[in-house]
Design a protein around this nucleic acid. Structure first.
Lengths: 341, 341
DNA sequence: GTGTTAGACACAATCGTTTGCACAAGGAGC
DNA sequence: GCTCCTTGTGCAAACGATTGTGTCTAACAC
């Protein structure tokens, strides 16, 4: 049973397909006689007509679809962002197509290519690296896009990110306020804006507060629990004694839990830990993780609104929006252990 | 800069577009002279030709795309399933389009409609209810689809689900083995196969083992932490004293944690709890949650393979596959407290 | 020399829309 | 009665591919 086509609706209403097309489209409806339009609408209704978006896209080079590119859906950070995006875009009549790059640049390129060839009207990318040839190329080609969560170092691409600097500032001051003087930062991959900003700010704040400062920044290879554990192990192996850790994100903080566990050390009695992002379930951990909360949902919805703005008004200046963050204090942080001797 | 089209490739190679089309498609390449084919391939390469999938879909009524419909991406159960699906389908040359219904039937219908009108070659649905008019309608229309995680009660629709019955059997026997005799089940919404199977099996096993049996099954309105807490509170309020709980899934189990916390009760000292699904992070909870592990990734990959089978061979009998589950014992379960008096 | 056949390609229709343009009918203005 | 708009429709050409059918050439058998 073939779908009913525009032509059959037109036939049923006794008009030409072109007229039916105009009658069905609110934008062009004024071009046809009100009575005729009504007849067409009726016929369409009666036959259960659904326009064929493929044919429409072929003709109009639009699709009412936007692509959402995430590095890893299993990272609990992204689903809420995706929800925020969907909420705004579906309201505006767009469908959202989610693709997963698995942190793989080649896959990203292929998936983006696939999205673009399907005429998506815009892209939201959560995969940005500071230097990102694919994004630069698309900027040059005038592709409508917004970066979410991370940015490139090119201010020419609009972005919505959490206020990473303020977040780390809060985290370090929190630890310092509890009395910690030897604090390390387990940074995420420094090729990303989030990781770089957090690490840089960490160094500044440590200096500003006059804390012990001998480069206690360790870079993790991934934003993952395993990489966090490895980095924490490396830190502990190196003999540097730290009493506080600010992790690049929550998954890295979880890796710290693992590393401490393995050595029979306790959080927060031996080491206090602060995460970043406030993914779900942290409140039920042992111990509940103190973390910097970012507004996941707004990150998505803000990015979506911004994309809509650029679609409507392509010449608008690119903006970079920082979203406010806050510290959520739980039980993974406490005063540092007393030094013996 | 318009994309290079098939016609321009043909022109560059000095042939007709039809010939170029056949040369580019491996299936039809034998219809054209080997030399000509080489020339066309060269030209396509040189011009960076990318076929336009929209035009192709319009003509062929296929899209090399499949739709994945999930009820809630923020439920950590689904992302790993999605990954399993993507892995298999991308290997087979398909793109995966993920949509989120938010448990809303109207949204589901609209999204499925949108996917179908974009000519997806098949659907994988994680949203099935036992009675599901939309799915029945699609079955009648011969839509190629596979249900994952949940099934309808209609065996005519192929599905891949965890062995829910065996899972609950393991959970109850585990508690009984520890000495529990008053065990409750906090069931998920009984309109879903997973919830119904788990609840039914619970009743059977309780009877088989000769445990105290007075209908200790409470239904939760949602598969959520909050609904789990509400159900647990209702159970505790009702005065029934239970020492063990099997939750419909892990989120519901987390709700039990909340409810116990609120009353100053301890898990496992006062009540032992078993979850279902083994979502990430359970091992780091306080206490780490004993749960029934299901093979998320295989659930996805198996469903994807099955869908590919149906696409290749539409007349194949629908199969329902059960995937093996296993109990993961952690510290949320222990021997029941001694009765006083 | 005629007829047959296979191979290689071109032609043109098609998928279901949208949209610039032509055209007819009708009313207004002179 | 003539032009000049306006309004409402139809016509046909796109969009970029795929595919059934035709045509032409060369080779071969008889």
């Amino acid at each position: 049973m073939p779908r009913t086509t525009l032509r059959s609706v037109a036939q049923a209403a006794g008009v030409h397909a072109a007229t039916a097309s105009r009658a069905l489209n609110p934008e062009t409806r004024h071009l046809v006689n009100a009575d005729t339009a009504r007849r067409v609408l009726k016929a369409a209704e009666r036959l259960g007509y659904q326009p064929n978006p493929i044919a429409r896209s072929l003709k109009t080079a639009r699709s009412n679809t936007i692509g959402l590119v995430v590095p890893d859906l299993t990272n609990p950070l992204f689903p809420p962002i995706a929800r925020g995006i969907e909420e705004v875009l579906e309201e505006a009549g767009y469908s959202v197509w989610i693709v997963n790059t698995d942190h793989d640049l080649a896959r990203e390129q292929a998936l983006v290519e696939s999205l673009r060839s399907r005429q998506v009207d815009g892209l939201i990318l959560c995969t940005a690296h500071l230097s990102h040839p694919l994004i630069e190329k698309m900027r040059d080609e005038g592709v409508k896009m917004v970066l979410a969560n991370r940015r490139t170092d090119d201010p020419g691409v609009p972005s919505v990110t959490p206020d990473d600097a303020h977040g780390i500032d809060l985290a370090v001051r929190h630890l310092a306020g509890l009395g910690h003087r030897r604090i390390a930062h387990l940074a995420g991959p420094q090729s990303t804006s989030t990781a770089l900003t957090r690490a840089r700010t960490f160094r500044h704040v440590v200096r500003d507060l006059g804390l012990d400062d001998d480069g206690l920044v360790v870079e993790c290879a991934q934003w993952s629990e395993r990489a966090g554990a490895e980095a924490m192990n490396a830190l502990l192996d190196s003999g540097t004694s730290v009493t506080g850790v600010t992790a690049g994100n929550d998954l890295i903080a979880l890796g710290c839990y693992d590393a401490l566990d393995e050595r029979g050390l306790s959080c927060p009695d031996d080491v206090s830990i602060v995460g970043f992002n406030n993914i779900p379930l942290l409140d039920k951990l042992h111990p509940p993780l103190t973390t910097v909360a970012i507004p996941h949902h707004e990150l998505g919805s803000e990015a979506a609104r911004m994309l809509l703005d650029y679609i409507e008004e392509p010449d608008r200046q690119p903006r970079s929006v920082l979203l406010p963050v806050s510290l959520i204090t739980r039980r993974s942080t406490s005063a540092p252990p007393q030094e013996n001797g």
